Amino acid sequence: MSTSGAILRVRSVAVVTVGALAAAVSLTSAASASATITVAADGSGTYTTVQAAIDSVAANNGVPVTITIKPGTYRGVVTVPANKPHLTLAGAGGSPGQVVIVEGHASGQTKPGGGTYGTSGSASVFVNANDTTISNLTMSNDFNEAANTLDAEQAVAVNTSGDRVQFDNVRILGNQDTLLVNAPSVSSVRRLYVRNSYVEGDVDFIFGRGTMVFQNGTVHSLTRGSSSNNGYITAAATDINNKFGFLFWGTTLTSNAPARTVYLGRPWHPSGDVNARGQVLYRGVAMGAHVRTDPWTDMSGFSWRTARFAEYGSTGPGAVVNANRPQMSASTATQYTPTAYLAGNDGWNPIR
């Protein structure tokens, strides 16, 4: 405000005060109304794209905001930035297949302006904010491996690095590196809770150094047309100081691949990090016949036996117990429950 504008008569001050009060009331009403935003590709909502709806939310918002997305296909990268917590993206269709967020970037593709996307940058959906919930929709990377000859064809559907993130009744679709359960640094713990959902891929398609509980859903391994090796479900890079990596709880493993051709996982050591000691537990999981009898394997010169891989109470034709399949003891299993994985230092418990 200029000096001359600050010298006002008393009457003028009263008018400005009343006007400011009215503006404040109007702003409060607008903020309240914006707690729910509707996205519709046909123009019948507040916005036509999911990203526009996210962009409309004030930075560092303290009030939860629900973005309801009407049925349709929404092509384009969607990012929930770190400074916009407490957002819910909810598909409004009768099933998660009716609302689809999709893009087709791959690690080795050239970005506009130069350079390549890289694996983590190839995602269709980035969840960088804490306390984000995504429900009843599909997140997909439809990069066509068969139609391309890139040196790096990793194509992430979802890259989540926020904490206390929840996916409920979603589909996550891709091929190589479908779901990146990320963390911004080796010392950071980031938690993802996935319930009643479906994820598919072929190579390392659930990977990263974050902590995840995948409960009561389906993990589907796509065939690569091999008679012996049709890929790896996980590539965990859990830091040795983090007790909890990936827990599959009450989940079903399915595939269209031949019997005994899919690995449960292998240990990922990003940039050769010797402290990346992946932790993966399949607990109470129904395993299809596609799971190999030797389901863990080495990666980039690192032995799977130095990682923290185990099963407990697996069932189905793929559940074979032998020397290549470490089984967690009943006493140790009491420490490895969904609530233990997700509690962290703040006692977070989204399980219902």
Rank of each mutant, 00 (worst) to 15 (best):
H269F: 05
K243N: 14
Y263V: 00
A235I: 03
Q215R: 10
Y232D: 02
D163F: 11
S226V: 13
L222K: 14
D239Q: 08
N230E: 08
P295L: 01
G278K: 12
T261P: 08
G288A: 06
G210R: 09
W296R: 05
P295K: 03
D202G: 03
S188L: 00
V213E: 08
V186W: 10
H220F: 13
A235Q: 13
V285T: 15
D163Y: 06
G162F: 04
G288S: 06
F205Q: 01
R266T: 09
G162V: 08
N196F: 08
Y282H: 11
F214T: 06
T160F: 06
W268P: 01
T254S: 07
H290K: 03
S187N: 14
R283F: 02
T223A: 12
A257S: 14
D239A: 15
V186F: 11
G201H: 04
G162Y: 10
S255A: 07
F205E: 06
Q176W: 04
P184V: 14
T252R: 07
S226D: 13
K243T: 15
H290Q: 13
D204L: 10
R195K: 14
N169Y: 10
N242K: 15
L180H: 12
R292L: 01
T211Q: 12
N242S: 12
S197C: 03
T223I: 09
P184G: 13
A237F: 05
A235E: 13
G162L: 07
E200V: 03
Q166P: 05
S271K: 13
T254I: 06
V165D: 10
G284V: 07
R260A: 11
G250Q: 12
I172G: 03
A235W: 01
G174L: 08
V219P: 00
F244S: 05
E200D: 14
S188K: 12
A276S: 15
N216F: 02
F248H: 02
S221Y: 00
F205Y: 14
G288V: 05
G225M: 06
G162P: 07
I206W: 06
N216P: 02
Q176F: 01
V199A: 05
G231R: 08
N256P: 04
G225R: 14
V199I: 12
V285Q: 04
